[in-house]
Amino acid sequence: MENETADIKKKEGFNGQKAIVLPRSIISKDCMTNPLLSGTYITDIGFYPKAKFHYRERDHGLDQYILLYCIDGKGDVKIEKTAHTLSAGNFIIIPAEKSHAYASDKNNPWTIYWAHFKGHLVKSLIRLLLKRQKSYKGFVQFNESRIKLFDEIYSNLERGYSIDNLCYVNISFSHFLSSFIFDEKFNYSYKKSMANPVDISIEFMQKNLHATFTLEEIARSVNLSPSHFSALFKEQTGFAPIKYFNHIKIQKACQYLQFTDLRIKEISATLGIDDPYYFSRMFSKIMGVSPQDYKVKREMLRETKFL
């Protein structure tokens, strides 16, 4: 049960605040039973600007996960016995069923976006977050696109609880959550940051799909030793650099097969692979079908208007 003092402190609210609590009948009837919704769905969502005296204490936690995202001011969060301080750029996920308390700073009250959410996929998402962040607390670069995504989710919820609306909102909310887990990817097109050597090397590969490179040559493009570069690349992508390069070559080959009349030999040469038989073997290994079969199947799909 929430602290009574907290209710007294907050009863007057915060200027500009907004919040939506989804009807529990909607959650149990639609969100929990619909396969498109049951993985991750919102139960409550809101925005509290300059939330002076905002305070919550729950000795037994909630049956929902809570996201707090601070964009201004600061505050404190305690999950069981672990204390965290949130300031601008920090976010935290409070796990379900864990005792917690949080409070806005009295002198510099926080401005937060927040959401309560549930679903059978949420534990896996939080495990992924912990694997990457090593903590329930993290930091993200400010991005207007993230705020616009939140506002879009909120404004659509204001329009009611039709199945179409709920599906759109909760699929969008999964994207919103992923923007915290994968901040560097969410921000990539927004800030065009190329400081990461792995990003630089992938850009180098994409611009040189017509060429063939050794590991040493790709590593040289980012001024790293082959061993250091290879370890860093595999850590961030899960693939060795040359294998990754081959994958994006085959990705491009699929586009040629689908959208052009180039022959397989011509596609192979365009991608810097002189031996078309080697190209076909590589394509088959990655895609599970030969280039010729891939092309035939795509043509059949186009004819039947599935694409």
Rank of each mutant, 00 (worst) to 15 (best):
S135N: 11
L130E: 04
A88G: 14
N108S: 02
L86I: 05
V122R: 04
G46V: 01
A88I: 08
V21F: 14
Q64N: 14
G61M: 01
W110P: 03
N107D: 10
K29Q: 14
N90D: 15
D76A: 09
C31W: 10
G46D: 04
S87C: 13
F53T: 12
H120I: 10
Y41G: 14
K50G: 03
K50I: 00
H100Y: 12
S99D: 01
A115R: 04
N34K: 02
A101S: 15
S28N: 13
I71K: 12
Q133K: 13
H60T: 11
I45K: 07
S28F: 15
A83M: 09
G16K: 00
T43V: 13
L129S: 02
G75L: 02
A101D: 07
M32A: 15
G138F: 01
S87A: 11
Y48E: 08
F53Y: 01
I45L: 15
Y136H: 10
K11F: 07
L22Q: 10
K11W: 04
R127F: 15
L129D: 03
K18F: 11
I66V: 15
K11M: 06
N15T: 00
G13W: 07
T111S: 03
A6S: 12
R58Y: 14
K118I: 12
A19G: 09
G89I: 08
D44I: 08
I27T: 02
N34D: 15
A19H: 14
I126R: 04
H54S: 12
T43G: 02
G13P: 05
R24F: 09
G13F: 06
G16N: 04
D30T: 15
T33V: 14
S99K: 06
D76M: 01
G119R: 03
F47K: 04
K50V: 07
L128M: 12
K74C: 08
L62I: 13
R127H: 13
H60F: 15
W114T: 10
T40D: 08
P95L: 10
P35G: 12
T43E: 01
H116R: 10
I126K: 00
L86W: 03
K123E: 15
C31L: 11
K81R: 10
E80L: 10
I42C: 07
Y55S: 06
F53H: 09
S104L: 01
A6L: 06
P109K: 05
H100N: 13
G13M: 07
L125N: 05
F14C: 00
Y69H: 11
L125R: 00
L125M: 14
R132D: 07
L37W: 13
F14M: 00
L36S: 15
F53W: 03
D76H: 10
L62K: 10
A51N: 07
A101K: 11
P49E: 00
Y41I: 08
A19E: 14
D44L: 09
G73K: 03
C70M: 01
R56V: 04
L37P: 11
Y102D: 06
C31D: 13
K74M: 13
G16L: 00
K11S: 01
A101T: 02
S25I: 10
L121Q: 13
S38H: 13
V122L: 11
